[in-house]
């Protein structure tokens, strides 16, 4: 029973995902707060039907970018067009067609779960009866029907998040902006959110999300940009990024001795890159097993070994560094 598939934007069925005009287009986009430059001249294009991700550590400028796209933060410089319109001049008209799930839930604490949806729909001018019908459908979509008459405050973090996502859909938006949609959720809640977002994508809704979870980006995004210090440092599909910025496999070696450093010197010439961490050594290689054989041939006997495929996390850490940002 595919009861939920009709919930959002039924009219978008079968809309081809082509290289149509971009829904979001930024050129040299800048956001400054006083002396601080949060977004430092980025170029971005998001096409209809795609799931686009902004990946980056805290303070990379992801949220500032999202707020500008959401037309609630005027750009300090550069050019930004959303749905072909100017966010400063046409803010209300653009926002009418956007759905926004902000980083921090700002649900209405004085209203019930269901009222949060119906009231929000009214801000968009959705007729009352339509608002009620959509609220019921959306509560079903995010599995909160049983909590419809509950206040917001006693809900768990995952429930609040799902309600915020449902709220972002009451106006049947063409673009949904999700700022760290699963931060702070437990694994079950995260998977549920991912699954719902995936369904939205299947329905042709364009998703724009920020995250610092690599698995989230790999699961959801067709294309993404990696941001660091307000700039875009890499761009492409998750696969392309891995191919471009990392090797096919990673060989992780853990040596019994105190310092991994001593062993690292003996690994010269193996793989494209060696990275020494306090507790292990990473060898970026094409063939992990072959590399391991070579390591053993040099008479080294690591206490623990792991051969794994290269992930987006390797790319991310390579590009943005391992230093703690906040």
């Amino acid at each position: 029973m595919s009861k939920c598939l009709v919930v959002v934007g039924g009219h978008r069925y079968g809309r081809p995902v082509t290289s149509a005009a971009p829904l979001i287009r930024a050129r040299g986009l800048v956001k400054r707060f006083g002396d601080f430059t949060a977004v430092d001249g980025i170029d971005v294009e998001v096409r209809p039907g795609e799931a686009f991700g902004f990946l980056g550590p805290n303070g990379a400028g992801k949220s500032s970018t999202m707020r500008m796209i959401g037309c609630i933060s005027p750009p300090s410089g550069g050019e930004l067009r959303i749905l072909g319109m100017d966010p400063v001049r046409d803010g209300p008209a653009i926002r009418a067609r956007l759905g926004v799930c902000p980083q921090l839930d700002n649900l209405d604490p004085e209203l019930t779960v269901q009222e949060n949806l119906t009231t929000y729909a009214r801000y968009f001018g959705v007729p009352r009866s339509t608002a009620r019908r959509r609220a019921a459908e959306l509560l079903d979509f995010v599995q909160l029907t049983e909590r419809a008459d509950s206040r917001v405050e006693p809900l768990s973090g995952g429930m609040k998040r799902r309600l915020t996502i449902a709220r972002a859909l009451v106006n049947e938006p063409e673009i949904v902006l999700l700022d760290e949609p699963t931060t702070g959720l437990d694994p079950q809640a995260r998977h549920l959110v991912w699954e719902r977002l995936f369904r939205l994508k299947q329905q042709g809704v364009t998703l724009v999300l920020t995250t610092h979870y690599m698995d989230e980006a790999e699961q959801l995004c067709d294309r993404l940009v990696v941001m660091d210090g307000g700039r875009i440092v890499a761009e492409g599909s998750p696969r392309a990024l891995i191919e471009q910025h990392s090797t096919r496999e990673v060989l992780e070696l853990r040596f019994a001795a105190e310092s991994q450093e001593a062993f690292a010197g003996k690994l010269d010439g193996l793989g494209e890159r060696v990275e020494v961490l306090p507790d292990r050594v990473l060898l970026y290689v094409t063939d992990g097993d072959a590399a391991l054989a070579q390591v053993e041939a040099r008479g080294l006997t690591p206490a623990a070994v792991l051969v794994r495929r290269s992930s987006l996390e390797d790319v991310f850490l390579h590009l943005t560094g391992r230093t703690l940002v906040d």
Binding site: G91, A93, R95, A96, V100, L104, N106, D108, Y120, Y123
Partner: peptide, 14 residues
């Protein structure tokens, strides 16, 4: 405190 208007400005309401 409720940040109510932060949620509302994301809609067409100004």
């Amino acid at each position: 405190y409720q940040k109510l208007y932060d949620g509302i400005i994301a809609t067409p309401v100004r």
